[in-house]
Design a protein around this nucleic acid. Structure first.
Length: 132
RNA sequence: GCGGAUGGCCGGAUGGCCGCGGCCCUUCGGGGUCGAGGAAAGUCCGGACUCCACAAGGCGACGGUGCCGGGUAACGCCCGGCCGGGGCAACCCGAGGGAAAGCGCCACAGAAAACAGACCACCGCCGGCGUGCCGGCGGCCAGGGUGAAACGGUGGGGUAAGAGCCCACCGCGGGACGGGCAACCGGACCGGCACGGCAAGCCCCACCGGGAGCAAUGCCGAAUAGGGAUCUCGCGCCCCGGCAACGGGGACAGGGCGCCUUGCCCCAGAGAUCCGGGUAGGCAGCUGAAGGCGCGCGGCGACGCGCGUUCCAGAUGAAUGGUCAUCUCCGGCAGGUCCGCCUGCCGACGACAGAAUCCGGCUUACAGGCCGUCCGCGCAU
RNA sequence: CGGGGCGUAGCGCAGCCUGGUAGCGCGUCUGUUUUGGGUACAGAAGGUCGUGAGUUCGAAUCUCGCCGCCCCGA
């Protein structure tokens, strides 16, 4: 991660991440599902540039999906928490304004993968989506 | 010490940094406080609560429950007892009412499968002859390889031979009487023995059950479309009806489809204000609970009574987490050892599992560990 | 939150209600026919009846508990 020296104030992510809100409606997920996607060992990232006419409270929005394939309720919640954590740490810095992101949990790996590697996966996935 | 039975409990700990949800305070920077389970799970029962339906009672249908007594708001749950089965025992298991109300089934095998006999075989007497068979009469007992199950078992008397034919004991059925609230237990005496099993097949008997479910239900309520009322403006031509308001039909202007022509379609409303239904969404329901904990009393126990304590999640794409360190735990390797274990390194990242209206149960899942009680065997005293 | 259905041979299904023998089609294998293949004919193999208990002399079948899948309604 290349942290600019001038951006030292964002090394600690704020309690309420600036410009990050959570997707809550099914149509938003369905639209993201038809857009770009990038599969990583720990998760699948879907990304979509919103139409300018769409209303949004924040520039960047993110959603989480953990289906029954991930496992039982404990495994699903754990995967979702780890995805939330990496999103909280990475997306306010690297997320593009005007985009929706959806993180999809995978069985086993999302919960097992070392946290730093999972975080690096999101960094890699974002750079590939936005065409490096 | 070994093996076993059973009851209860815990189910990672502490700290740093960064976060999440509710509530409270705030000088809006923030601060304080609380925040998963014994099963939160499966959704198998029982309730609370809300709405709908409903005079009361009886009968019927359907579904459920089923030894007896008690506990409970209630239960299909729990406790205590009884009976049956298993185990040397501690203890465990049991949908455990009724088969002399009825219907149905009991394959194969077997002489016979439900009620009592027929059959084979056997015994006695008579007759015949090719001397161990045939025929007739009488007896019906024991026997008939089967089968899950078959006209009680043993011994004695009796008899031509036998048979509950008779007797004793056991079994079976009934049962005065006694004990127990009851299930049930004991049982004088009587009966020569008659009554197979399946009701988790139909059924009979007794008892219970109105339906739906917090996405219940109540309140507030956009945008867009549509409904109604009032007012204002407009309503040209032809035909029909009507006093009229107006209604029905047709064509033109105008508009739409189409590159154009032909052709087809629309052809009267528009605006403002108000009203009601109601979607998204929001709020209430929403956590104060037949609750937990402690003490005392009653009860064998389930549990009940009294006092104290004010403690204990309320999310809604859904909080209770991420990461690091130490300890603990698990596995592997190496070393040491007084064989109990200890030390170091590496690895896994900690069993089952995440509240969704609440409560009482049931069922199922569960690494590892702790405490207690009891039984059998062995050893020592 | 509530309701319903299905697990049987490699695949698709009967059999279950009314308990004793698990059967059909396709597929597989082996022969025959053909120069060979297909087709046709003949024969054979192949099933813990999802799982664990219970009732019964006996369970795919009856009862209960689990597991998996599918479909409805609010």
């Amino acid at each position: 991660m290349t942290t600019p020296p001038a951006a030292s104030e964002i090394r600690k992510p704020p309690a309420v991440p600036f410009g990050l809100s959570v997707l809550q409606n099914r149509p938003d997920f369905l639209k993201a599902n038809r857009a770009k996607r990038q599969a990583m060992p720990g998760f699948v990232l879907q990304a979509r540039r919103r139409d300018p006419s769409e209303l949004s409270q924040t520039p960047v929005r993110v959603g989480y999906t953990c289906s029954k394939k991930v496992g039982n309720a404990v495994a699903r919640n754990r995967a979702k928490r780890r995805l939330r954590e990496i999103a909280r740490l990475v997306l306010p810095i690297e997320g593009q304004p005007g985009w929706d992101y959806v993180l999809i949990g995978r069985a086993g790996e999302t919960a097992r993968r070392p946290f730093d590697v999972l975080k690096a996966d999101l960094h890699t996935a974002l750079s590939r989506i936005h065409g490096a």
